[in-house]
């Protein structure tokens, strides 16, 4: 199994160039059973990354482009009157895929946003009184543009909390960009990628991730981290228990990816910026970013052992 995971990583890294850490985190996020939020400028390879993930993991893929006129029905699906049968038939929306890329989520109205986020949370959607299960596995990779861009509806903290991780891809390194420019178009590579995992293997891996051992000493470290966010003055508010759970499950998945069956503090530190960066606010600046600096502070100041 471990070898399979390495193979997956390699396959993705061949397509998404020079983003090894982010790719690893994204895979960790999916293994940990969480949804991923990618925040970056357009054109940084967000779509390529999600598409490649879907291909490699053998998941069906749908992309929803969020715009300001997007309606919840466009995401979930609608019932259409069928003249032949004389009945309403349900046409499932793009959300009924195993991996959904919700592109530029913060351009849509809060109403449409919450339709997606509720589906993420519940694993099912209720349309016109009927509850329909979403496929299993079900992942959402949402992307959003940085706050500074115009015409955006920022996701509220409660919604941000539902994403296990937030990543930012950033500009590629010079060499990677050169390879990108010299090589084939990434989009063309995609259809050639073979799925490396099937559904049952993915489920087994997720199961294994949940069973990775987190010792008392390690849980104490997580608690120390969480406690610090609750007691230190520079934090606008402390982390929720959901966040501590998120830290632990992401750290487990990271440890599994590293081929270990137990978590060490370094695993926690590796996933910490991605997992809690979007959940923290600086007291002096409760609207803006600053989460990153706070995470660095936590990793530096909270005793590891």
């Amino acid at each position: 199994m471990g070898r399979k995971l390495d193979a997956c990583l390699n396959a993705i890294n061949e397509v998404v160039l020079g983003k090894e850490p982010q790719v690893r985190l994204a895979l960790t996020c999916l293994l940990g059973g969480g949804h991923l939020l990618i925040e970056d400028l357009p054109g940084m390879g967000k779509t390529t990354l999600s598409h490649t993930l879907a291909r490699v993991l053998g998941l069906s893929f749908q992309r929803i482009q969020f715009t300001s006129d997007l309606l919840p029905g466009d995401i979930l699906g609608t019932s259409v009157f069928d003249r032949d049968t004389g009945q309403f038939t349900f046409h499932p929306g793009p959300i009924f895929a195993e991996l959904v890329l919700a592109d530029e989520i913060n351009r849509a109205t809060p109403k449409s946003q919450s339709a997606l986020l509720e589906a993420m949370e519940e694993g099912q959607v209720t349309i016109e009184g009927a509850t329909r299960l979403l496929p299993d596995p079900f992942f959402v990779i949402a992307t959003q543009n940085p706050f500074s861009q115009g015409g955006t509806f920022a996701l509220p903290e409660s919604q941000l909390d539902r994403f296990l991780m937030r990543l930012s891809l950033g500009y590629p390194a010079r060499s990677a960009e050169k390879a990108l420019l010299l090589g084939e178009s990434r989009r063309d590579l995609l259809p050639r990628i073979e799925p490396l995992l099937d559904h049952s293997e993915l489920a087994t891996l997720q199961q294994q991730a949940r069973q990775v051992r987190a010792s008392d000493a390690l849980v104490d470290y997580v608690l120390r981290l969480v406690d610090a966010t609750r007691s230190q003055p520079q934090f606008a508010y402390g982390l929720s228990p959901r966040a501590s759970l998120a830290i632990l499950s992401a750290a487990r998945a990271w440890a599994l990816l590293a081929g270990r069956d137990y978590v060490i503090p370094e695993d926690v530190q590796a996933i910490l910026p991605a997992v809690i960066g979007h959940r923290l606010r600086e007291r002096t600046d409760p609207t803006g970013h600053g989460g990153g600096a706070l995470v660095q502070w936590l990793m530096r100041e909270v005793p590891v052992l």
């Binding site: 060490i264 503090p265 370094e266 530190q269 990793m299 530096r300 100041e301 909270v302 590891v304 052992l305």
Partner: peptide
């Protein structure tokens, strides 16, 4: 270093 784990 402060915040450095055992393995690192």
């Amino acid at each position: 270093q402060p915040g450095e784990g055992a393995q690192a």
